[in-house]
Simulated assay, not measured.
Amino acid sequence: MRTIIFIISVLFLHGKCEQDQTIQDEKRPFEIPLLEFESVVKSGNALVIDVREPDEVYEVRVDAKNYVNVPLKQVGSSLQLSAGEFEKTYGVKKPSLDDDVVFICRSGKRSLTALKEARGLAFERSQHFVGGHLGWIANHPDLVVREKEENEKTRRKDEF
């Protein structure tokens, strides 16, 4: 009898471990490496969510094909909006729980906070770029948008 109970226990635990492994496989690592982030930026395969404040974004931002600015203080509430409300508010399609999402900020601290909040809301395929915009600009100064500079150039041209 003890042998039967032991075998059943082992089979149960083995099945639970396999199930836990499947759940873990669906999660992404917290940090996305530079080369993988470069691919995301160029391809648009994931939504890049910049969690900096709008005035920071106005200075410079990553030139990603699939990009939105959602300040950190709005991340939790924005991810709980309906798909229609999210798109109406932010101008892009709301990510589903199965979509890849990458958070970015200036240096990595706010994006990690946003990532933890998203993971808490079951966005298990979300990651953050730990180098932030500082790391991105250092490696890819050609793949940024500098709205402030562009607007100032346009304003100067208009003055003449």
Rank of each mutant, 00 (worst) to 15 (best):
T3N: 13
F6C: 09
I8A: 15
I8F: 15
V10W: 13
L11S: 10
G15S: 13
G15L: 08
K16W: 15
T22A: 14
I23Q: 12
D25N: 13
D25G: 06
E26D: 08
E26A: 12
K27F: 15
K27H: 15
R28C: 09
E31A: 11
P33K: 10
S39C: 06
V40A: 05
S43K: 09
G44D: 10
A46F: 04
L47G: 05
R52V: 01
E56M: 07
Y58L: 10
Y58S: 06
R61Y: 04
R61D: 03
V62N: 02
V68A: 14
N69C: 11
P71M: 05
K73Q: 14
Q74H: 09
V75P: 08
S77W: 15
Q80Y: 07
L81V: 12
S82I: 07
A83F: 02
A83V: 01
G84Y: 10
Y90C: 04
Y90M: 04
G91F: 00
V92W: 04
V101I: 12
F103T: 02
S107E: 05
S107T: 08
G108T: 01
R110W: 02
S111W: 02
L112P: 06
T113V: 12
K116S: 08
L121T: 03
A122E: 09
A122D: 11
A122S: 14
E124F: 15
S126M: 10
Q127W: 05
H128S: 08
G132C: 01
G132H: 02
G132P: 02
H133K: 09
H133Y: 13
L134S: 12
W136N: 00
W136E: 00
I137V: 13
I137E: 01
I137Q: 05
H140F: 03
H140W: 01
P141T: 01
P141H: 02
L143Y: 00
V145Y: 07
R146Q: 03
E147T: 05
E149F: 13
T154K: 09
R155K: 12
D158R: 13
D158V: 10
F160E: 15
